[in-house]
Design a protein around this nucleic acid. Structure first.
Length: 1051
RNA sequence: GCUCAAGUGGCGGAAUUGGUAGACGCGUCGGAUUCAAAAUCCGAUUCUUCGGAGUGCGGGUUCGAUUCCCGCCUUGAGUACCA
């Protein structure tokens, strides 16, 4: 009997599905365990071998926990709203709903044939079904399946995950986003009470307002809220009341700075901007203020920080979140502007250095800039603001070399000395940080120092005995303040305290804790996201009552912003709210009396993913009453193990923690933190292949030759050249002329000559064309073999047809084309994607699972190399042969030998430790060692081989199930108890000691473990090898650690 | 720029509290089997001037450092609208 993995895997995948083996129950006597993977976004490119890495790890853990007797919840679903689907919709007009569905469910039926609806009459495949749009692929083409979207689900199923698919969720499903909208409404109907330190219903706030005004309300709210009494509140118009409440609500409308691209009519993310222009199309981008929904996450800054102490995340991830929250202690100081009513408020962590202030800098976007700039400086200031608006925030942060700024002409007044302080603007100050203004202390801050030097602003030294002639002194320890009036002679701590005290006396400052964390913008000017359950009455946002949810995303003709720059929903014809019928109705009915316009923005990607882990807790049948029932929430509590990429460290992981805390405050859930333990898996990188291109560069060419040259270059286009020739033309810094090239390699020269017909352009046989290689044209790695040769076949020509590759390629003397290799992220555009389907077909899912784990530590980045999979595949074959030979099952009831037991139990110990430490790569090695040893021992004992299957089953579940059933079992191995480790089998009576001389191991000797130090020393010193090493000398020290090491030192 | 992570053979990596550096696998080389190939099996494989040296570089602590400390270098990730 062969190890026929394809049949075995299909059989068990079907068995698990038919028997609902991994369906979790919300009622169980077993303890619960919740294992979750971060939500995948179902992109059209499908899965590559990097994606399942984390899923395999979590699946191993989930299966292990089942063997340990837990009721395991291990669900999966899709974060199915998002930009890629939207962008594809913009390009093709395809509804994102449809493409998303294709991406999840795929275009092939169960037999692997194309589903009819994706077929055109002429036998070619519809664009929407193709991974790479625009290609012409026919169902008659060999392996056409490689070019169509197989669907996430189908790809995942092939890998043998133990997911409970009955609980699947999709964020773009109205039944799901109904509850995203519902949570949004709860946020709107809540405020944060600093007294109780939690979110409360907004009714409790209005109750306080109408009974005592807002004087004693201690809430997290907008700055600069006007004070009012109960009488005033009660007298306010409803609209005025709404405006005030909006300043307290946990989600609110506010003006926010965004990256606006006027040509695209949309807002861009920082990473969609390259060098100040849009990545797509290269259009200019400016910073612009826009009214948007925001989430008052800042209310939770302290709790988000404190909560980190209670969860088991990696230290680096916690650190990232701490930095993001950015708590700092210091003072808020108010500087009066001379001859003006305006004041500049700054936050500083160093109020002790206040006497070192020699100028102030405002962010160019700061509100006060226009108000305080003097007429003489107005033009310069305007020009500067316009210039900075073009720079992204990240550019401004990263670029410390360029120093720029403009004097506003205004002077502030030092709170203590009353000296005038010039007020500048500079783009190194960001509007979104602190108050958007800094008191510049050049002697104590390097950026202030550089700024002052650059603009010749004085740098007063306020540190006793510190030289600041070349750089600022940024330390705060072991320094005494000088030239600072009442702070003279004090250290940092005392000076800070006294400075704050005196500022408070003046009424110009107070101690303050500042958080860098800023409120999260929640609006997106996109189509493919959750619609807000919001309509506007006289411009004031109104929530739609929760019983009318979901508000379903409307149909639009195009997915672009409108010509007026409104979001895509501005194109919807039926997008108004009728307060009579409580239905979405045609825009034409808007009368602002009973029918009102609906919100045009949609929610961001993180809305749906901030609470999805609760949705899985509830079984599908019971999901219509609440986002999850109380029973379900109480049973599953929180995620015990969460695995996903570290790129979510500050987005998803912070926002979901925020929402959970909010939901807890309002009594909807009982937990404070959603994820108890979190592991970041690293990325599997691809090995890209690049064809080298021979480049021809005209240098020092006279005008009249230029035309010929350009003709030539045009005619040549790209000449691909086998990488072997790299030796001849090393790199672009070492250029050759045609003549030189001819001298070096006649063969190559003749090849070029043939390809481009140099004779027709006689002027080219000169030294004026320089030749070099650029190795950067990406080649689909599916057409490159392990020795880096291109495999020219039909599919290669389909893939690279438009280049007519072969006709323009110079092969090497063996008639091969060699490519260069480089390790980088797997991506469609780099043609370096390895699909798990191909691996499963050739080696099986168990091999894939083992190999992904075997590659290296889970958290680490590592390159994929398909060739290496033969190692683990060979291991599985060996494992099979341990149980099965030509005559069938060879397992017997033979008594296990001592060696058999030793191998088994050391394997149990190691594997259990490894799984609990998430060190899956080392357990694969351990399995290999075990199988090698048992093979050498010719072990056939059931008592050994059956427990071994349970150990391996989390990693390679299909082969484990198959062998387990061949051993006579009729039920799944998935819940068989994990073998128990028995130390007695591992006890040794002797140890092979390494004997070191001055720390270097020179030889080993086996000694009984019960010897004393003295006895060991005697034996060691008597050994002739010792005497040879010592060469007559006497060691000063003999270190003997029984059971570990012997070291002779100091001779 | 700031923050975090990682640097060990030709390659992926192992060495869990400081104790035999290179487990396990890939690749390569040699051999067996075969008419031949595939598959399988066996052996070798850090470098070396054969004394030793050696875990990115330079120091330090220690009987002993891949592991701990200090200072660098390189690469990767995140940096608030990609998901």
């Amino acid at each position: 009997m062969h190890y026929n993995f394809n049949d075995i895997e299909a059989k068990w995948q079907k068995y698990w599905n038919d028997h609902q083996t991994f369906k979790a129950s919300n009622n169980s006597d077993k303890p619960k365990y919740y294992v979750l993977d971060m939500f995948p976004y179902p992109s059209g490119a499908g899965l590559h071998v990097g994606h399942p890495l984390g899923y395999i790890a979590s699946d191993i853990y989930a299966r292990y926990k089942r063997h340990q007797g837990f009721n395991v919840l291990h669900p999966q679903g899709y974060d199915s709203f998002g930009l890629p689907a939207e962008q594809y919709a913009i390009q093709t007009g395809q509804h994102p709903k449809n493409t998303t569905e294709i991406n999840i469910d795929g275009c092939l039926d169960n037999e692997g044939n194309l589903i009819k609806k994706y077929l055109k009459d002429d036998g070619t495949i519809k664009d929407s079904a193709l991974i790479e749009k625009g290609k012409i692929i026919s169902v008659k083409d060999e392996n056409y399946q490689n070019y169509v979207i197989k669907g996430y689900r189908r790809q995942l199923d092939k890998i043998g995950f133990s997911f409970d698919w009955s609980r699947e969720v999709r964020t773009s499903d109205p039944d799901y986003y109904k509850w995203t909208q519902w949570i949004f409404i709860q946020l709107f109907e809540s405020w944060y009470n600093n007294e109780t330190n939690k979110a409360e219903p907004i009714d409790s706030l209005t109750a306080i307002f109408s009974s005592e005004g807002n004087a004693n309300v201690n809430a997290v709210c907008d700055e600069d809220i006007e004070a009012f009494t109960a009488d005033q509140w009660n007298a306010f118009s409803s609209e005025k009341q709404q405006d005030i409440l909006l300043q307290y609500r946990l989600t609110y409308l506010a003006e926010t700075e965004v990256n606006w691209c006027p040509v695209l009519g949309t807002v861009l993310a920082n990473d969609e901007i390259v060098n100040g222009v849009s990545e797509r199309g290269g259009h200019p981008v400016i910073r612009k203020k826009m009214t948007q929904w925001s989430m008052r996450i800042s209310a939770y800054a302290e709790r988000l920080l404190q909560g980190l102490e209670t969860v088991d995340f990696t230290e680096s991830l916690k650190e990232t979140q701490r930095n993001w929250i950015g708590k700092s202690q210091g003072a808020e100081v108010e500087f009066r502007i001379q001859n003006s009513e305006f004041r500049i408020s700054v936050f500083t962590t160093r109020p002790d250095t206040i006497f070192g202030v020699s100028f102030m800098t405002l962010a160019p976007e700061h509100d006060l800039v226009n108000k305080i700039t003097t007429p003489e400086q107005q033009q310069a200031v305007n020009d500067y603001i316009e210039a900075t608006a073009k720079r992204s925030e990240r550019d401004r942060m990263a670029d410390v070399k360029t120093i720029s700024g403009v004097f506003t002409g205004a002077y502030a007044e030092h709170p203590f000395t009353k000296e005038p302080i010039p007020v500048w603007i500079g783009d190194y100050v960001l509007a979104s940080y602190g108050t958007g203004a800094v008191m510049a202390v050049p002697c104590g801050d390097q950026r202030d120092y550089d700024f002052a030097k650059h603009f010749n602003i004085p740098i007063p030294n306020i540190f006793e005995g510190v030289d600041i002639s070349t750089e600022a002194f940024t330390g705060k320890d072991n320094v005494v303040i000088a030239n600072s009036g009442f702070l003279n002679g004090l250290n940092y701590k005392k000076a800070t305290k006294l400075a704050i005290y005196n500022l408070e006396q003046l009424g110009q400052g107070k101690g303050k804790t500042n958080y860098r964390l800023r409120d999260a913008v929640f609006s997106r000017q996109r189509y493919w996201g959750e619609p807000f359950p919001v309509y506007y009455v006289n411009g004031k946002p109104q929530m739609i009552a929760t019983e009318h949810l979901p508000i379903v995303l409307p149909e639009v003709e195009k997915y672009l912003p409108t010509e007026e720059g409104e979001p895509p929903l501005g194109r919807a014809d039926v997008w108004a709210w009728c307060t009579k019928t409580n239905k979405v109705v045609s825009n034409q009915l808007i009368d602002h009396k009973t029918v009102f316009p609906l919100e045009l923005n949609t929610m961001p990607g993180w809305a749906g993913s901030s609470w999805y882990f609760f949705r899985y807790m509830e079984e599908k049948a019971n999901r219509d009453q609440a986002f999850a029932s109380e029973d379900a929430l109480n049973y599953w509590e929180s995620v015990d193990l969460y695995i996903g990429g570290s790129e979510h460290a500050t987005g998803h992981l912070l926002y979901s923690r925020f929402w959970v805390k909010f939901l807890k405050d309002r009594g909807f859930v009982n937990i404070e933190e959603p994820f108890k333990k979190l592991i970041n898996q690293g990325m599997i990188l691809g090995t890209s292949a690049f064809a080298s291109i021979l480049k021809f560069d005209p240098i020092n060419i006279s005008e009249n030759q230029m035309e010929d040259i350009s003709k030539l270059i045009k005619r040549i286009g790209s000449i691909f050249i086998s990488y072997d020739y790299k030796k001849i033309i090393p790199n672009s810094t070492k250029q050759l002329s045609l003549e030189e090239l001819k001298n070096i390699d006649e063969n190559l020269f003749n090849n070029i000559d043939e390809l481009i017909d140099l004779d027709s352009l006689p002027t080219l046989r000169t030294n004026e064309i320089f030749i070099y290689i650029e190795p950067f044209y990406p080649i689909n790695i599916n057409f490159v073999d392990t020795s880096n040769k291109i495999i020219f076949n039909q599919n290669f020509l389909i893939d690279h047809m438009y280049l007519n590759f072969k006709k323009k390629a110079i092969l090497n003397s063996e008639n091969e084309f060699i490519v260069s290799r480089e390790v980088e992220k797997m991506s469609k555009s780099k043609y370096n994607v390895v699909s798990p389907d191909a691996i499963c077909a050739e080696y099986g899912a168990d091999s894939l699972r083992l190999y992904e784990m075997f590659l290296g530590p889970l958290e680490q980045y590592k390159p994929w190399n398909t060739a290496g999979i033969t190692g683990v595949h060979g291991f599985l074959k060996k494992l099979w042969k341990l149980y099965i030979d030509d005559n069938g099952v060879k397992v017997t009831d033979a008594e296990p030998t001592k060696d058999n037991l030793k191998t088994l139990h050391k394997t149990i110990k190691k594997v259990q430790e490894d799984i609990e430490n998430f060190s899956f790569n080392t357990s694969v090695s351990t399995f290999m060692i075990a199988v090698n040893e048992l093979g050498a021992q010719k072990c056939t004992s059931r008592e050994i081989l059956e427990p071994l299957l349970v150990l391996i089953s989390p990693y390679a579940p299909h082969i484990a199930e198959e062998l387990y059933s061949l051993l006579g079992h009729t039920t799944s191995i998935s819940t068989v108890t994990f073998p128990k480790f028995d130390e007695s089998h591992l006890i040794e009576s002797s140890k092979v000691y390494p004997v070191s001389f001055n720390g270097k191991m020179r030889f080993t000797m086996e000694l009984p473990l019960d010897l004393s130090k003295d006895e060991i020393e005697k034996i060691v010193m008597a050994d002739e090898r010792t005497q040879k090493q010592l060469d007559g000398k006497t060691p000063k020290k003999v270190i003997i650690v029984p059971g570990k090491i012997i070291n002779l030192a100091g001779f």
